[in-house]
Amino acid sequence: MQRNTWLRPEKGNSLTIRLLIWVALNLGYRVTALLRWPATLYYAAVYSSVRRASWQYLSHLHRAGALRRPHWGMVLRHIHAYSTNTLDRIYLLSGRFPRENLHITGQDILHEALHQNRGCIIMGAHIGSFDALRQCGLNASVPFRMLMYRRFIGATSRFIEALAPGFNADIIELGQPDSMLATLKALRNGEFIGILADRAHDGGRSIPIRFLGEEAPIPAGPFHLARLTGAPVVLVSAIRQKNGTYHIACTGLADTLLPETEPAPAREALLSPMQAYVRWMEELCQRHPYAWFNFFDFWEKGL
C-alpha cells in the first residue's frame, strides 16, 4: 500500500489535453462533448487504479445504503462524470461558460461571515467542480485566493489552468514555510481563502474519521488554520445538474461562525468541525454519487 496516492502527477498527457482544449475552444461544446465517451473508455481501459478507486468508492456508498450494488457500468458512468467535469473546466477557466448557468444558493452566509472582519475560509472537497465556484468568487467584491498544493500538478491541470488569466497569481502554494503566514495576511485583509480540504498531503496532520462506513485519513490542517485565525468557515459545493448548469450551495460549518476571542486549545477541538465536514461530504456523495472526484485509495486500506 502506498500512502497519499494522489501525490503523483495526474493522469493524462500533454498532447491529448492540448488537442482537447483546441477542439473545445474551436469546435464548440456539442462536438467536444462527443469525445467524452471515447475518453472515458480509454481511461477505464488504461488506468486500472482509477477503475479500482471508483469501484472502492461505489462499494462504500453501496454499503452505506446510498447506492445499489456497483457494477462496471457504474464505474464507467463515474469516469464519464469526471470527463464532463474536465470538459467544463476548459469553458469555466477560459471564461466561456455562460454565467447564467451558475446558480448560487445560501450566499447570505458569505456576507454574514465577511461581516466578522476575519476573512472567510471557503472549504470545498473534490466533489463537483471547484472551478464553477471559483468563477463566482472572481465576480465577488472581495479577493478570492486558493490554497493549493502545486508540486505534483500534471499536464491536464497545467494546460487547463493556463486558460485562466491570473490563475497562478490567485494561488497561495501549500508546502512552503510561509504558506500559512501569507494565508493569515490575506484573511486579515478580509479576503476569501478557498481550500479543498479532503486530501491530506502531510500524514502527520490527518485524523482518521469515519467516512461512508470506514475510517479515512482526513487532513486536520485546514481546521487548524480556521482555529488559529478565527476565520469563519463556509462549506461550498458546486454540483453539475442534468441540464449542464451548476448549482453552487453555501452552508456554514457549525461552530466556526460564532465569533470567538479565545481559540480552543487542542486536537479535540478540531474533531467536531472535522466530523461536520465529513458529514457534509457524505451527504453530497449520497445525493450526487458520481460527483466524487478522488480517484485514489481514499481510505488507504489498499485498492
Binding site: 512552503q176 514555510p177 510561509d178 500559512m180 503566514l181 493569515l184 495576511k185 502527520g204 485565525t229
Partner: peptide, 25 residues
C-alpha cells in the same frame, strides 16, 4: 515543522514579544 507550525510560532511571537510577523512575505 510545517507551515501551520510556523503560523503557531508567529502567533506565539506576537503574544509573547509583541511583534507581528504576518507581513513582509
Amino acid at each position: 515543522l510545517d507551515s501551520i507550525d510556523v503560523l503557531e510560532i508567529a502567533l506565539m511571537v506576537n503574544t509573547q514579544y509583541g511583534i507581528k510577523l504576518e507581513s513582509h512575505d
